[in-house]
Computed example of a mutant assay.
Amino acid sequence: MAWFGRGRGEAKGLSRLAQAGGPVGAYAAAGLPDPATPAAHLRLLALDVETTGLDPAKDHILSVGFVPVSGRAITLDGAGQVHVRPPDGHEGVGASATVHGLTDDQVAEGVSAREALDLVAAALTGRVLLAHHAPIEVGFLSAVCRAAYGCDLPVRVIDTLALAQRAYPAHVEPPPGALRLWSARARFGLPVYGAHDALMDALACGELYLAQLAELEATSSRPVTLARLASSP
């Protein structure tokens, strides 16, 4: 199983963040979840970012939403969402407003990208990052982490898109659009929410994960652990 940032790079990142103190220091000090952790004992943070585009090298985060998942339950009292103001010298929402509906005025009143990362780090401490198409979330958070702290964000990841893809035999190509968040949810009869709102998308991802986990546990003869669920963005 491949792990994002595993090995010397991961250790170096944790060490650098530990030295930085604050929320990222506490995140690093807590360490990353053990791959052998049973699914029933996993603590996760379903997370979604809304951005100006798909390239962390030139685009930026506009909104972050997250919802904790503990074992087989969603804990809404730990949910949160913040708007993120553009970095100096960058335009506002631009054409991406047609996707997520955020306005320049909304994001201008938001927190800085570094403050958003610190907020995520506090919520993510001791947890696994859970996202649908996780390379987007990890890529943008790591871009902010590099700018603020000089390293990628060391993190354990479960990707509900990757879990949805595993439902198809290796030789079968999923139908177009079948792996999108809302299509994957429809397979389990989960309700339809408004798309492209960071908090709602995070909640939708958390619900999808619990449905996928229940199916996997019901059909598996082996214990379901983080190592079996994890993805490498």
Score class of each variant (00 low, 15 high):
Pro175Phe: 15
Gly189Glu: 13
Glu215Cys: 09
Leu203Phe: 10
His171Leu: 08
Leu190Glu: 01
Ala195Thr: 04
Val172Pro: 01
Glu207Pro: 07
Arg228Lys: 14
Trp182Pro: 00
Glu207Thr: 02
Leu190Asn: 04
Met200Ile: 10
Asp201Pro: 02
Pro174Lys: 04
Leu210Asn: 05
Thr225Asp: 06
Arg185Tyr: 02
Ala186Cys: 05
Ala198Tyr: 00
Leu216Gly: 02
Asp197Cys: 04
Leu179Ala: 01
Trp182Lys: 14
Pro175His: 10
Leu208Asp: 00
Arg187Glu: 11
Ala204Leu: 07
Gln212Pro: 08
Leu216Met: 14
Pro175Ile: 12
Val192Asp: 15
Glu215Val: 08
Arg185Met: 03
Ala170Glu: 15
Glu173Ala: 11
Ala170Cys: 14
Pro176Ser: 09
Glu207Cys: 07
Leu210Ser: 04
Leu190Ile: 09
Ala178Met: 05
Thr219Tyr: 10
Ala184Trp: 01
Arg185His: 01
Gln212Val: 15
Ala204Met: 14
Arg222Ala: 15
Arg185Phe: 00
Leu203Ala: 11
Cys205Thr: 15
Ala230Glu: 04
Ser220Arg: 04
Arg185Pro: 00
Glu217Trp: 04
Tyr193Thr: 09
Ala195Asp: 07
Thr225Gly: 05
Glu173Met: 09
Phe188Asn: 08
Ala170His: 08
Phe188Pro: 04
Leu208Arg: 01
Ala198Trp: 00
Asp197Pro: 04
Ala178Arg: 05
Ala184Val: 02
